[in-house]
Design a protein around this nucleic acid. Structure first.
Length: 119
RNA sequence: UCAGAGGAUCGGGCGAUCGCCGCUGCGAAAGCAGGGGAGGAAAGUCCGGGCUCCACGGAACGCGGUGCCGGGUAACACCCGGCGGGGGCGACCCCAGGGACAGUGCCACAGAGAGCAGACCGCCGAUGGGUUCCGGCAACGGAACGACAGGCAAGGGUGAAAGGGUGCGGUAACAGCGCACCGCGCGAUGGGUAACCGGAGCGGCAUGGCAAACCCCACCGGGAGCAAGACCGAAUAGGGACGGCAUGUGGCGCAAGCCACAGGGCAGGAACCGGCCUCGCCGUCCGGGUUGGUUGCUUGAGGUUGUCGGUAACGGCAAUCCUAGAGGAAUGAUCGUCGCUGGCGUUCGCGCCAGUACAGAACCCGGCUUACAGAUCCUCUGACCGC
RNA sequence: GCACCCGUAGCUCAGCAGGAUAGAGCAAUGGUUUCCUAAACCAGAGGUCGCAGGUUCGACUCCUGCCGGGUGCA
């Protein structure tokens, strides 16, 4: 495993209105998750990230593990591949529970590139 | 060795890289260093308490809960010990287990009868009356019959349940009608704190079941919940008090002012309606309060060890330890390696593959219930084998 | 955290102070009718009454514990 580069700190989204705003923005669907990217449009170039895993996915242990893995994926990828000044939201899907970590990482890379292309 | 019963415990280890949340120290800060960071069920939220606020003179009614007895406990619906009933060869397990002469109600279908019982088939011929036959002159006597009046409830049949059972005597046939044994009820008295147990003797036997139907009896319970509660509190907007300035339209008046109308508010009134108050700006003060911050917040009916008391639950004493405190939620991710379990292959060295549970603290405790791959320990029971 | 409701046929609902055949409408199936379809008419089928215990002679109904779904309040 290659060393994960330590980038600038990624803030976490917790306000409901931010999630709702991201839901109306760009959307990329992969088997393991759905990626929402919402450029805030303000002067701040900071990258923010949020995670959503509903009760439909599983019990608390399953949901927590999924969020932790998403957090790890975001920390590794968003610093240099994320969109500056944008909110990124990862929504868990059922197929993402037992999905291989490397597969998820590759899918996140492609999803980010695709989101960058949408304009 | 096999099968089983009871109790207790654990529930992945090590390493590497990169991270997260508190705490402590250093630092102006960025940050650095040290140390800590999920469970036996953290779960379901089914009970019981602590804590906090609110309410409150007492009691009763109502409502809800509990329900053999004794003990433990802060308390309990929990636990321990005992009693009674049921199951198992046994270790042991299971039981909401008060009251049905305080009252009300229900017991479908079937059946004759189902709750102060009842007579369908049946049994009887002692009694009344009758029919037939025999004897007698007659009064009457005897025998048979069983449609009637009547006696009976053994047997058949129905049902979950039919008002003790078996045997002998007894009888017209029956029947606790009498007796013996068993069962049942009452019960002198003895044991036990009690539930309860034993039981001299008495009673011919009567009070069927359902209270997880209403209910009765005894005991317990005020309500809400850490989003409880306490403190701080910016800007904007808004509320109240005081002071100053000011008052929409129309009419009257020189003016102060008065009246009417429209809007708003308040109280009355079913409504029509009439009454009273008020409006804008500035300043000071007061109170409420949204986002937010601080606190409650983890030292506690606490854990471990020893000892003493107790059958035990548990309690007393002593020593020792500090063990998550976030505030929408951290306690992790990835990889390597070693365990463990199963399968396949094997040159018996091992190799390959698969699996490695249930599940995530949110104020804190005591229980209950439910989920759980696998592993370990202790005690005990029944078989079989050996000595 | 607290309070409460509902699980019955494929769907929407009845039923029940305990009594044995668990019903209704729609849907689906077969038939009649029609050139064919729809509608209409006729017929039958379809149920672990969410699950597991208990009380009772007897449980969809009563009690207890679970499972699933939903609502309200702070």
């Amino acid at each position: 495993m290659t060393a994960v580069p330590t980038g600038p700190r990624i803030a976490t989204i917790s306000q409901r209105r931010d999630f709702l705003a991201a839901n109306k923005a760009r959307r990329v669907v992969t088997p393991g998750f759905i990626l929402l990217v919402n450029p805030r449009g303000d002067a701040d170039p900071a990258i923010r990230a949020g995670y959503t895993v509903t009760k439909k996915i599983g019990n608390a242990v399953v949901r927590n593990r999924m969020k932790r893995r998403f957090r790890e994926l975001a920390r590794a990828a968003l610093a240099d591949k994320g969109l500056a000044g944008a909110d990124h939201v990862l929504i868990g899907r059922e197929a993402g529970i037992e999905r291989d970590y490397a597969t998820l990482a590759a899918e996140l890379d492609r999803a980010l590139a695709k989101a960058r292309g949408q304009r």
